[in-house]
Simulated scan of single mutants.
Amino acid sequence: MTRRTHTHPDLTRPGADAPFFSHWQVGTPERQAATVEAVARAWERRPWGSPELLSYHLYTGLDGSSLMHHSQWRSEQGYEAFVRTHRQERNDEIDTAVPGIERVRLDRYRRYRSHPRADGDRRVAGLVVTVRIDFDADAAGKRADFVDLVLETLAGPDADPGLIAAHFHLSTDGTHVLNYAEWESGRAYDAAIAGPESPEWARVRTFPGVKGFTGRRYRHALGLEP
């Protein structure tokens, strides 16, 4: 069966070799809440979708109109089998409850490296920030070097105490990096980005091949597990 949890996912979970992130637009905070509950009902009243699926988490965007989904799969083949057999009936039920959902995109990744939480740190993230870093078409091979530079910077004196952990994913299509960052609170994140830019962070911002950065803020709303 399927159970609901409020525990945030472990982005470093062993076996989660095919992490996916997808985005929906639903329009208003009221529709955000209704969609979260519709997703929960569609899953809880059915058996767990696949032994290949380790967990499924849903986040509400602080913009009041978006949702982010994060699913941890053992393999892409497991996801494709689920799509063929079980996804549509869930989507149909959700769409009946909340008509007009716009399913914007689904991106597939491999987690490359993480800036892990410190030993003994039991804080629960009050804010999840995703930053998508897009690269020029001929710069896919530079993505790992970019992440290495960011992690080197985070390990130095510029590390912010409000940052709990950061997890860097390489898109399988070669176009971008996704940083899933866990922050203590929105206030801590605001303070971090309001500070002066150090030379180390300037190197990150001007890294060769980077086209741009897109950041979004979320709160964890729902976790589903077998």
Score class of each variant (00 low, 15 high):
M1L: 05
M1P: 09
T2I: 08
T2S: 10
R3G: 02
T12L: 10
P14Y: 06
P14T: 02
D17W: 01
P19V: 07
W24A: 15
E30C: 01
A34H: 04
V36I: 14
E37I: 09
V39L: 07
W43I: 02
E44R: 13
R45D: 10
P47M: 02
G49V: 14
P51Y: 08
L53M: 11
L54S: 02
Y56H: 15
Y56S: 12
T60V: 09
L62E: 15
D63E: 13
G64S: 02
S65K: 15
S66C: 08
L67H: 13
L67D: 13
H70T: 10
S71G: 12
S71V: 06
Q72C: 01
Q77H: 08
G78C: 03
Y79C: 05
E80R: 14
E80H: 13
F82D: 10
V83T: 11
V83G: 06
V83M: 11
R84E: 14
R87H: 15
Q88S: 14
E89Q: 14
E93N: 04
E93A: 15
I94K: 09
T96N: 13
V98K: 07
G100M: 03
R105V: 06
R110D: 14
R111G: 09
H115T: 02
A118D: 00
R123L: 05
A125H: 08
A125D: 01
L127S: 05
A139K: 05
V147H: 00
L151K: 01
E152G: 10
E152T: 13
T153I: 14
L154Q: 15
A155S: 12
G156M: 07
D160T: 05
D160M: 07
G162E: 13
L170F: 04
S171D: 12
D173H: 00
D173K: 00
G174Q: 03
L178I: 12
N179R: 08
Y180K: 05
A181F: 06
S185F: 08
S185Y: 08
G186H: 09
R187P: 00
D190V: 04
A194L: 05
A194F: 03
E197D: 13
S198D: 12
R203P: 03
R205S: 11
F207M: 09
G209C: 01
V210G: 03
K211W: 09
G215D: 08
Y218L: 14
R219L: 13
A221N: 02
A221L: 09
L222W: 02
G223A: 06
L224E: 04
L224H: 05
P226D: 08
